[in-house]
Amino acid sequence: MHAPMIVFDRVSKNFGNLPVLRDINLTVSAGEVISLIGPSGSGKSTLLRCVNHLERIDSGSVTVDGELIGYRRAGNHAHELPEKLIAKQRARIGMVFQNFNLFGHKTALENVMEAPVHVLRIPREEAKERAIQLLTRVGLSDKMQNYPRMLSGGQQQRVAIARALAMKPKVILFDEPTSALDPELVGEVLEVMRDLASDGMTMMVVTHEMSFAREVCHRIAFMEGGRIVECGKPAEVLDNPAFERTRAFLSRVQ
């Protein structure tokens, strides 16, 4: 493993009076694939969404590649960054959603080209060439002119991954990427993710796919009640959990 890529330092967050993240410390190295597992409401998705400042944290800090996310430090204050600078940080942090969220009014190709052209200001021809490469890589070279509603869930999610890759992200966050898919379509999406992992992409994956977590991830973090209960190699966490709560959760999902 290499240098730290994502660092959570004593991160806490509340929704009103309800604490959803409590004192989270976690370091994800460059090239590492880590999955977050745990019961619903345990804070996995919220933790993921703090990485690109879709959620504000109440205390602590999140850094990506050494850069403090969402804030600028000045003395003992952290001032929230102006929208444009936050947008700039987000541009290099890919995100893949449970419900794909492909742009419905754009074809698969246009979905992948949209942000490179209109955010990074890459010339259209260059962006198109790269989008074609990426869609080919995820196995959709024959679906480039299709609109999202003409694609299956698995195909849509692969377009969404290509769309994230088009921004040349430092990390990609996956928020339950296969939870909305029919069972027979899960494999094709996991296949693409496995390919990314072997390519050295830093990935944080909130998932319920234990077999994927076991085979592909370097580490698994089990969360409950806004805390990381335990974190370690898949074999340790899944086969020999140190805590009873982890054991109880695993017995319910496996």
Partner: peptide, 11 residues
């Protein structure tokens, strides 16, 4: 989700 996807792409 459309707005979220757009902002997470840096818009």
């Amino acid at each position: 989700g459309q707005r979220q996807a757009a902002t997470s792409l840096g818009m």
